[in-house]
């Protein structure tokens, strides 16, 4: 068993008066992929957004509890969320490259905007290779990021996240807006990235969770209902609510 990378202790989150996450505790071992599944509104997006403190940016949002990365509490008040987000990257549901920037500038945006100087060329190639996009864009790095297809844009966003060399990558339904081939590429990428990163991925697609993850957590109505090895969740869940969800007996 790998050492623990992320440890969540009694995490609670609210939107104004709505209690969106209730006492969630779980751990993610280093270099593994955790998939978060559950019906819409179950708190799975809120959960990952708590991990890099994007949740607190929403007006009226609060959270309590602890999130430890490598044993260090990154939700303590003295920790700057900006530092946390450099260690915990995030990829969103819809590809969101910066429209005014070229492919090259998008990849280095995180470095440049954070005032990090250095040999961008090397970093761009490395990140784009990691995101399995290099061969497709190496001859047009100065083109607009919007000239890419949806799947390429999403891999560009992944490359952009990787460029700041995070330790953890959060993915909020990264393939839900993509076609099956682009989805397969993202999934293959997740398998490769596991070697260097710890990944938490939210997905509506249970087959996707089954394909890419080592462990799966099922959320329902803000609660963590069940968390276990992916194979077990999908063949023999312990909780009846998980069983109903994975077999399609909800609603």
């Amino acid at each position: 068993m790998n050492e623990t990378k992320i440890e969540v202790q009694k995490l609670n989150a609210w939107f104004k008066t709505t209690h969106a996450l209730k006492d969630v505790s779980l751990t993610v071992p280093k270099n593994t992929v955790l998939a978060i599944i559950g019906p819409s509104g179950c708190g799975k997006s809120t959960f990952v957004r708590c991990l890099n403190r994007m949740h607190e940016l929403v007006p009226g949002a609060r959270q309590s509890g602890k999130v430890l990365v490598d044993g260090q509490d990154l939700h303590a008040r003295r920790v700057d969320p900006v530092d946390l987000r450099r260690r915990v990257g995030m990829v969103f549901q819809r590809p969101n490259p910066f429209p005014t920037m070229s492919i090259f500038d998008n990849v280095v945006a995180g470095l440049r905007l954070n005032g990090i100087r250095g040999n961008y060329d090397e970093q761009v190639e490395k990140s784009l290779r990691q995101a399995a996009l290099w061969d497709e864009v190496k001859d047009r790095l100065q083109h607009s990021a919007l000239s890419l297809s949806g799947g390429q844009q999403q891999r560009l966003c992944i490359a952009r996240s990787l460029a700041i060399e995070p330790e953890v990558l959060l993915m909020d339904e990264p393939a839900s807006a993509l076609d099956p081939i682009a989805t397969a590429k993202i999934e293959e990428l997740i398998h490769d990235l596991r070697a260097t990163l710890t990944i938490v991925i939210v997905t509506h697609n249970m087959q996707q969770a089954a394909r890419v993850s080592d462990a799966t957590a099922f959320f329902y109505l803000g609660e963590l209902v069940e968390h276990g090895p992916t194979e077990e969740i999908f063949t023999n869940p312990r909780e009846p609510r998980t069983e109903d969800y994975v077999t399609g007996k909800f609603g």
């Binding site: 087959q207 089954a210 999908f234 063949t235 023999n236 869940p237 998980t242 069983e243 994975v246 077999t247």
Partner: peptide
Amino acid sequence: RQPAASDLR
């Protein structure tokens, strides 16, 4: 159907 859990079993 890509069955799961009890359906798969």
